[in-house]
């Protein structure tokens, strides 16, 4: 599986309106990514943490994947997920994550101040830590805090879209990525595109050659877009679809029957999965459906 965790949603706050042109542009980007071999894509809604969130859980997620992209998913077999990125400036103003995380598959944090960075590396219950690669990092990244954060299971994200825009952003991107790789000792890094238009998408070879130049070994690059990124998806999906990672809704027998791959089967509101009965006490116990690798 090839995963892209960052395709921006054309909305920067809840007050913004979504135009159909922007959504069409997004669909074009998604199908380009599909052409390049991506199978799992997360649509990223970036919002300020101190902003006022709607009270109703249903209004919390403006992306509405099933209605807008259901046709695309059926046609191409892409798996789409929703992701929220919270811009954290002053930790005292934000509200609790537990309610927000119910509506989204992945929760990411984007600290823009030193306080925000310490909060998101220590306390917040998030899946991803990302930075604004186009501008200066909020503070010098320390190995101790970043690595303890990675040990907790939070992954660091590199967004290569910034390297493709203008010269100033590219210069910052290089130094920021190098500092992220240095402080994390190249552990727990995932790579996302952040592509605003179809032209900014790259396939795995292009990304690997870019990031390899910046000091990440190439095997880690391919892991960053495959295994580690799918672990982020797993972590995020398990938060809502399971009780503390013990009992999960849905099964895991056939292809795409587990929590991550099963996007359409699980009822999001009730978190149940209704299927036709396939298990019976009269069935033979072994090798009834032996796995063929």
């Amino acid at each position: 599986m090839l995963v892209d965790l960052n395709v921006p949603w054309p909305q920067n706050s809840y007050a913004d309106k979504v135009t159909s042109q922007a959504v069409n542009n997004l669909i074009k980007t998604l199908s380009t990514l599909h052409m390049l071999g991506y199978t799992h894509i997360a649509i990223n809604f970036t919002v300020n943490h101190s902003e006022k969130f709607p009270n109703d859980v249903k209004l919390l997620n403006p992306i509405d994947i099933k209605r807008r992209f259901g046709e695309l998913m059926d046609r191409t077999g892409l798996k789409l997920y929703s992701r929220i990125t919270l811009i954290i400036d002053d930790p005292s103003k934000g509200q609790s994550l537990s309610k927000i995380s119910q509506a989204f598959d992945i929760v990411a944090a984007l600290p823009i101040s030193e306080k925000g960075l310490t909060l998101s590396t220590t306390n917040l219950d998030i899946d991803l830590l990302t930075f604004q690669y186009g501008s200066r990092l909020p503070t010098f990244l320390k190995h101790k805090s970043i690595c303890s954060c990675v040990n907790r299971g939070v992954k660091l994200e590199i967004v290569y879209g910034y390297a493709l825009r203008d010269v100033q952003a590219r210069r910052q991107f290089v130094s920021n990525v190098r500092s992220v790789i240095r402080s994390s000792r190249s552990r727990g890094i995932v790579i996302g595109s952040g592509a605003m238009s179809p032209l900014e998408c790259r396939n795995i070879l292009g990304v690997t050659s870019l990031i390899k130049n910046l000091g990440l070994p190439s095997d880690r690059c391919s892991k960053a877009m495959g295994d580690l990124a799918s672990l982020v998806l797993l972590n995020g999906r398990l938060r809502n679809k399971s009780h503390k990672q013990t009992i999960v809704t849905g099964g895991g027998s056939g292809d795409g029957d587990d929590v991550v791959n099963d996007v359409q089967g699980i009822d999001d509101v009730q978190t149940i999965k209704v299927v036709k009965r396939s298990m019976d006490a009269e069935q033979l116990g072994h090798a009834s459906k032996r796995h063929k690798p």
């Binding site: 849905g250 895991g252 299927v275 298990m279």
Partner: peptide
């Protein structure tokens, strides 16, 4: 994986899985 039948005459069931690592 296990299934809980919803009713006797119907064919549908609720499907759940146990993650053994956390259990």
């Amino acid at each position: 994986q296990f299934e809980i039948p919803i009713s006797d005459d119907d064919d549908s069931a609720l499907r759940y899985s146990i993650l053994g690592d956390r259990f």
